[in-house]
Amino acid sequence: MDALIGKSTAGRKYGKKVKEITASLPSDAGFYLWGFYTSVGLWRSVYLGKAGYGVSTSLRSRIDEELRDERPFAWCEHQMNTDHIWQKWKNPDNIPGHEPSPKARQHFDRSIRKAGSTHVIAVSLPVSEIDNKSISSIEADLIETLNPIANVQRPRPHSSLQDKTIEVIRVFKDSIHSHRPAR
């Protein structure tokens, strides 16, 4: 639980592990899906994220950032013990009167909704295949179709499923099936 605090020795070790894990991810745009398998091997979608183009918006940087900023997800078992984790995470140095920023609380709340996730599946879309505007439109389709439980914001899709949305769903589905635990 010491790894909750990014500047602690355990927190820095967690950060290094995240960097190792995300180093192999593409620096393209795309989508990523957090989730887990139930005890009978069914997939549950937890959170769908998008990454556009640019240095700080690639799949690699977005997943790296979420694993670091929303690390409390790893210490919560399906949203249990959140008060204790919040107390430790919001004020690691026990400074009287210290209150975290509203953005820190947003990260914490989203991380708690991701509790129980065991997998993050990424789908890369090279710049030659899609632009930033299309990414938002596809995101709306994916959220409506995959119904991830942690996505609070649910943009309304503009039309029927787009061809690129169907391609992304196929890649997610193939990955989900290929990583399904044996029963």
Rank of each mutant, 00 (worst) to 15 (best):
M1E: 12
A3T: 00
A3H: 00
T9V: 11
G11I: 06
Y14E: 06
K16D: 09
K19R: 13
K19C: 03
K19M: 03
E20A: 09
E20I: 06
I21Q: 10
T22Y: 01
S24K: 11
D28M: 00
L33H: 08
W34K: 00
F36D: 03
F36K: 10
T38A: 13
V40F: 10
W43M: 09
R44D: 04
G49E: 10
K50G: 01
G54I: 10
S56M: 09
T57G: 00
T57S: 06
R60H: 08
P72R: 09
F73M: 12
H78C: 08
H78W: 11
M80H: 13
N81W: 03
D83W: 13
D93T: 14
N94P: 01
H98E: 06
H98Y: 15
S101I: 05
P102W: 06
K103P: 00
A104S: 11
R105T: 11
R105H: 13
F108Y: 15
S111V: 03
S111P: 04
I112G: 04
A115L: 06
G116E: 08
I121S: 05
A122F: 03
S128C: 10
D131Y: 08
N132Q: 13
S134G: 13
I135A: 10
D141F: 10
T145I: 15
L146Q: 06
P148S: 07
I149P: 00
R154T: 07
R156P: 07
R156M: 14
D163R: 11
K164G: 10
T165L: 05
I166H: 07
E167P: 00
V168P: 00
R170I: 02
S175I: 01
I176Q: 01
S178L: 05
R183L: 15
